[in-house]
Nucleic acid binder design. Structure first.
Lengths: 136, 136
DNA sequence: TCATTCTGTAATCGACTTTATTACAGTACA
DNA sequence: TGTACTGTAATAAAGTCGATTACAGAATGA
């Protein structure tokens, strides 16, 4: 997956969960994460496409959660930002004349799928509300 | 983690497991993975530092497993190549004046540690010999 | 001894990816 | 109708990854 995006998306969602329905501007969020506001808007756009966030344009606009924080699983966040395989698909084209090379990608894929299953199981057990609750 | 290295290291180790004690040259291995031999030697160097491989310099040199394939857990391979956090530590320095920003890295770290635990549990159950056994 | 065939390692380059930045159209509000 | 936002494209800057070159050192065997 695109490593840097998960923490950013989770940060955004955590801020919104703590704001309890208030609309947050991309500038405000960017100030908390300490990144560029355009990047925040891009992530918000992605999270919106995945049904986690609603946003409003224009003056006094901003974004907020599309559903209660206890209804958002961290596995959904993972799915929203996940692009590539977890441990990295070898983009190499191994030698097909080699017994190991010929089959390894298939076996790697199987292994990744198992591992990702374990990871998603964990993430599925934690809601955004659970995550927020840790903050003192 | 450095995504691309896990499959490469596992490929190397799988070749060695299938070669049963024979010394394999970096050129031969590179030919199976279809990457540059220098990269192979770098990975071998790393795996050697982690006690998984032994190598011999000079003519007719090469590398072989340092212990039987059924004594090598895939979790060891993961540890050998793992550098960064699984889901990616935000390298951002969040705003310390923000309640969420101030604490989020700590909570992200905790979350990652939990998830990584689940992942390692899976990888710990498979040995290199198990992995090789899948190859027809 | 000495040419050969390897490993080990550093250094550099190019390709690719990621993030920051600039720019600007569109929308809502007061 | 000015202001404060979002949405999005385009470009630039920075960082990362793999390939490649280069070369010293080690083991072998003729």
């Amino acid at each position: 997956m695109n490593n840097g995006r998960f923490p950013i998306s989770l940060h955004i969602l955590t801020l919104m969960a703590s704001a309890e329905g208030e609309l947050l501007s991309s500038d405000f969020i960017a100030g908390s994460i300490n990144i560029n506001p355009v990047l925040v808007r891009k992530e918000i756009s992605n999270l919106r496409n995945h049904g986690l966030i609603e946003s409003k344009e224009g003056k006094n606009g901003g974004a907020t959660l599309a559903k209660p924080a206890d209804k958002i699983r961290l596995s959904e966040v993972y799915h929203a930002v996940q692009q590539a395989s977890l441990l990295g698909n070898s983009k190499n084209k191994p030698n097909p004349d080699c017994l190991v090379g010929k089959q390894i990608n298939q076996h790697l894929d199987n292994l990744y799928q198992e591992i990702e299953g374990a990871l998603l199981h964990k993430l599925d057990k934690t809601s955004l509300a659970d995550f927020l609750r840790q903050f003192a």
